[in-house]
């Protein structure tokens, strides 16, 4: 049994419900979680940048190597006795610039040639070109560059770009992590989630699972967050009926 209920009041005076309210519960949950992750990442970035951390991420405590989570070290310490939570927060720094840069570059290239985003936008343009409102804009006397910039990119592709940027961010984190894990990315002693997983993995089978599990979960949660956000926004901003 599925229930449909009409809300009270005059329909004509009722403005269309916001897309947020009309979205399904799953979409809302996905976007909510994604926004939470983005918020956490942003806060962590600021905390890391101003150095407002639970502990000094490079201070070694030789008395407590690979200490389990507990008081003093909320997520425990790594093989050099450094505070894992602090290193996780500082590790965000490694993503931010490369991450944003990658997204910006792929966006810029997207319009001229980079495969993924470009093909999506090109498809959209192809689709819109058949729409008569583009021709109507042309007949009205709008210059072609205005039609492309305003009618195609701004009004009809802006949500697409936001979605792609979000997904691209997740992508960038994954790439950086893989590189660092393989030892090509950020180098010790600078913290990054990738090299933390890598360093911690050596002790994983000695029963010390937290030094690698904490950053691994952080990576999972963050990438999942970005993807869910992108996916949710996609369904929210690009509803089928609007196409």
């Amino acid at each position: 049994m599925r229930r449909y209920r009409e809300s009270t009041g005059e329909v004509a005076e009722r403005s269309e419900r916001s897309r947020w309210r009309a979205a399904t519960l799953t979409d809302r949950a996905a976007i909510g979680y994604g926004l939470l992750v983005v918020g956490l990442v942003a806060v962590s970035y600021v905390l890391g940048a101003v150095g407002w951390l639970p502990d000094d991420p490079s201070r070694m405590d030789m008395a407590r190597l690979n200490a389990p989570p507990g008081a003093g070290h909320l997520l425990g310490t790594d093989f050099l006795g450094r505070d894992i939570l602090s290193r996780l927060i500082v590790g965000i720094q490694a993503y931010f610039l490369p991450g944003l840069l990658a997204v910006a570059i792929s966006l810029a290239l997207g319009i001229t040639g980079a495969p993924a985003i470009a093909s999506i936008i090109a498809g959209k343009i192809q689709f819109l070109r058949q729409k008569s409102f583009i021709e109507a804009a042309h007949v009205l006397g709008l210059p072609t560059r205005v039609i492309v910039a305003k009618h195609i990119l701004w009004y009809n592709c802006a949500p697409l770009l936001i979605i792609q940027a979000t997904l691209g961010m997740g992508e960038a984190i994954l790439v950086e992590t893989s590189l660092s894990y393989l030892g090509f990315g950020v180098q010790e002693p600078t913290a990054s989630w990738g090299n933390m997983v890598q360093a911690g993995a050596n002790y994983f089978f000695h029963g010390k699972f937290w030094p690698s599990t904490a950053p691994a979960l952080a990576i999972l949660g963050t990438i999942l967050g970005f993807h869910l956000l992108g996916d949710g926004l996609n369904r929210l901003l690009e509803p089928k009926s609007a196409s």
């Binding site: 449909y4 809300s7 329909v11 009722r14 269309e16 419900r17 009309a22």
Partner: peptide, 12 residues
């Protein structure tokens, strides 16, 4: 025969 509009929370 009714249809339901989620956006307007109303029956068509």
């Amino acid at each position: 025969t009714y249809f339901y509009s989620r956006a307007k929370e109303a029956f068509i």
